[in-house]
């Protein structure tokens, strides 16, 4: 995409106008990602800020082999994970492998539910569950990949996800 290349090249040359254009193009969607991984709007703003600083400083490593948005999103997710790791959020999670079989088998319908309400549900998840849920359900990573990214065992990833799913379904039943 020629325009995208122009934008990337501008950012590589530290062109402030290009940097701002890139930010304005992706900030909205990336802020929504940050919101999902953090527990408050303030934290999301911090993560977004750090993520874009990294985007601008590492833009020279972008090789055009994937859409720019996907690359930026990866930076944002990694920044969020790094942020959470600093917060020691993962120390709080327990290895609850036995929960794997306890996943509710039926789907919970989300149709008609406001985005903010869903976001609130995700944010209410325990920290470990929240990240695993985001990475598995929304981002589409596999449990072995998530385990590597978060520095946890694959079993923990599965059990955290099972717990997240269970909690979300329960909350939806409760709320709706």
């Amino acid at each position: 995409m020629k325009d995208e290349r122009t934008l990337v090249e501008g950012c590589r040359n530290k062109d402030r106008i290009a940097q701002r254009t890139l930010y304005e193009r992706f900030a909205g969607r990336m802020f929504a990602v940050c919101q999902r991984y953090t527990r408050s709007r303030f934290e999301a703003e911090d993560v977004l800020q750090e993520a874009f600083i990294k985007v601008f400083s590492q833009i020279h490593t972008f090789r055009y082999d994937c859409p720019l948005e996907a690359w930026i999103k990866r930076v944002v997710i990694n920044t969020a994970i790094s942020y959470l790791r600093k917060e020691k959020a993962y120390l709080e999670q327990a290895d609850i492998d036995n929960h794997t079989d306890a996943v509710a088998e039926n789907e919970t319908a989300l149709s008609g539910i406001q985005y903010q309400q869903l976001l609130s549900l995700v944010r209410e998840l325990p920290p470990g569950c929240q990240s695993v849920f985001n990475l598995y359900a929304i981002e589409g990573y596999q449990h072995n990949e998530i385990a590597e990214m978060l520095g946890i065992s694959e079993g923990t990833s599965k059990s955290q996800y099972a717990r997240a799913k269970q909690l979300l379904q329960a909350k939806m039943l409760e709320s709706f």
Partner: peptide
């Protein structure tokens, strides 16, 4: 379950405050 949640957040967009930029 995953599909529904994925769709719910797929197009989610929320402009951060100007102070972030």
């Amino acid at each position: 379950f995953e599909e529904n949640w994925r769709r719910a957040f797929d197009d989610a967009s929320e402009m951060p405050p100007d102070s972030v930029w």
